[in-house]
Simulated assay, not measured.
Amino acid sequence: MVNKHEPHLDRTFAALADPTRRALLARLGAEETLSVSELARPFPMSLPAIMKHLDVLSDAGLIERQKTGRVVSCRLNAAPMEEAMDWLNHYQRFWTARLDRLAEFLEKAEPEPEDSCPPNRASPSGDD
């Protein structure tokens, strides 16, 4: 399952590491397509900075761009994220199995519960 070098997976995780890029992807997930200027509108940064983020997303295959006249529109491509999820799910199953075995081991190793305070056999009034 684990390959020594998976550049496409590296690019996906690198692209997803930045909060601005994740926000751009979230906006594209809510709309079918958005122009670059529509995507950039809510962010407090320059259009060239947004374009650099879009370049990273495009290089990772997470977005597709289409130019119609002077307008560049972007669309989400979730396939690389699905591959990343498959990779993460592999390790989730691995750690879940390990933790389940640890829980079984600890349950078998636990001593029988004992009363922490044995009952007091003395009379409550002290009239012995």
Results as ranks from 00 to 15, higher is better:
N3M: 13
T20Q: 07
P48V: 03
H8M: 14
F13A: 08
A79E: 15
S125C: 03
Q66A: 10
A14V: 06
E110F: 02
S35K: 05
A109G: 02
T12L: 10
D86K: 13
P113V: 07
P113C: 03
R21S: 06
L62Y: 07
G29N: 08
S73I: 07
E32R: 12
A49G: 00
M81Q: 12
V72S: 08
P80V: 07
S35G: 12
S58F: 05
N120S: 12
L24Q: 08
N3K: 14
A17K: 04
W87M: 07
P7A: 11
D127A: 08
P113A: 08
T33Y: 02
D59A: 13
L57C: 09
A14E: 13
P42D: 03
P118E: 04
D115P: 01
E112D: 11
T96F: 08
R93F: 02
F105W: 09
T68M: 02
A60P: 06
A79R: 13
R11D: 14
F94S: 02
L9H: 09
E114K: 14
D55N: 13
H90P: 03
D10C: 11
S123G: 07
D100I: 04
R101I: 00
D128L: 06
P111I: 05
L39S: 02
L99W: 04
K67M: 00
A14R: 15
K108M: 07
E114G: 04
Y91Q: 06
P124A: 12
R101A: 14
A109W: 03
L88H: 05
A109R: 12
L62D: 04
P124G: 00
P111R: 06
M45F: 00
K4E: 15
R22G: 00
H53S: 13
P119V: 06
A84M: 08
L88V: 15
D59P: 01
P113M: 04
N120L: 12
A109E: 15
P44G: 01
L24M: 08
I63K: 02
L28D: 08
T12W: 03
N77P: 05
A14N: 13
A122I: 01
